[in-house]
Simulated assay, not measured.
Amino acid sequence: MKKVVLSITILMVLLISACGNGEESGQNAEVPAILEVELNLPEEELQPGAEVTLETYVSQGGEAVEDANEVKFEVLKEGEADSEMLEGEHQGDGLYAATMLFAEAGSYKVTSHVTARDMHNMPSETLIIGNASEVEAEDTDAHSGESEHHHEHEGAVTVELQSDVEPQANQENELSVLVKEKDNPLTDAKVSFEIWREGQEKHEFIDAKETGNGIYKAGKAFESAGNYQLNVHINKDHLHEHQLFTLTVK
């Protein structure tokens, strides 16, 4: 009888110890460091016809990221609606690069889209090709005579998710956003939803339809539960904006 009691006592001590270690490990679990993306563009004056190397340095917690799922460079010329997307190639030591020939003078918005370790980051910088003062003067002339709506700059466009209900897996879900420009509904824009599950490389693009008053909707059936990234792209005239959201699918 004493041996039975002793065995039960030892078992209880082991269970309590295991639970304590589990709680301690849970309390000590570290939150992943933010994915840092540094976009590097040439600082010297560049002339039309220049072949330019676009570089981005990716790190996390002070260490270079060598296993990024996807690195792309999006280049949009001021005054144009369509952008060009370039694949970034891994150079080593957290550096990814792509080369592009800039045939025309102008102001270009360069955005580095980086997906790595279940995170997404997309910093933007401006690249000037040609004489900077002449390019600025041309941009000013191009926008003079346009309505106020047509010469908004970055930061004037906002995107709001309209549904408070969490999407459900294995059924059709309605994704809805309200797009505003300086607090006014932005209408007649081309809006698309870029969707991918965290940790996966495959990105899906869905065109959204405008239902009126700046609201754009599209249906999406998620194959499984988990965290997804929703990148909302807005294009109208020279405007090209995007805003990233995280969706938790149940």
Rank of each mutant, 00 (worst) to 15 (best):
K3R: 09
S7D: 02
I8L: 15
T9M: 12
I10H: 00
L11A: 10
M12S: 14
I16A: 14
A18E: 01
G20R: 04
N21I: 05
A29N: 11
I34T: 15
V37L: 04
E45Y: 07
Q47F: 05
G49F: 03
E51K: 13
V52I: 05
T53H: 03
T56D: 07
G62H: 10
D67T: 08
K72T: 08
F73Y: 02
F73Q: 01
V75F: 09
L76S: 15
L76H: 14
K77H: 03
E80H: 05
A81P: 02
E84I: 05
E87L: 06
H90I: 01
Q91P: 12
G92T: 03
Y96I: 00
A98E: 01
A98M: 02
G106A: 08
G106W: 07
S107I: 12
H113A: 08
T115H: 14
T115Q: 14
M119Q: 15
P123I: 03
S124F: 08
T126I: 15
I128Q: 02
I128N: 02
G130V: 00
E134Y: 06
E136N: 04
T140K: 13
H143N: 14
S144H: 03
S147H: 04
E148I: 11
E154V: 11
G155D: 05
T158R: 09
D164G: 09
V165F: 08
E166R: 12
N173Y: 02
L175K: 10
V177N: 08
T187S: 14
F193N: 11
I195Q: 03
W196F: 13
R197N: 12
R197E: 15
G199M: 01
K202L: 07
H203E: 14
I206C: 08
K209S: 13
E210D: 11
Y216G: 11
K217D: 05
K220L: 06
A221N: 14
A225S: 13
G226N: 02
L230Y: 01
V232F: 05
I234L: 04
H240W: 00
Q243S: 09
L244R: 07
T246L: 04
V249R: 13
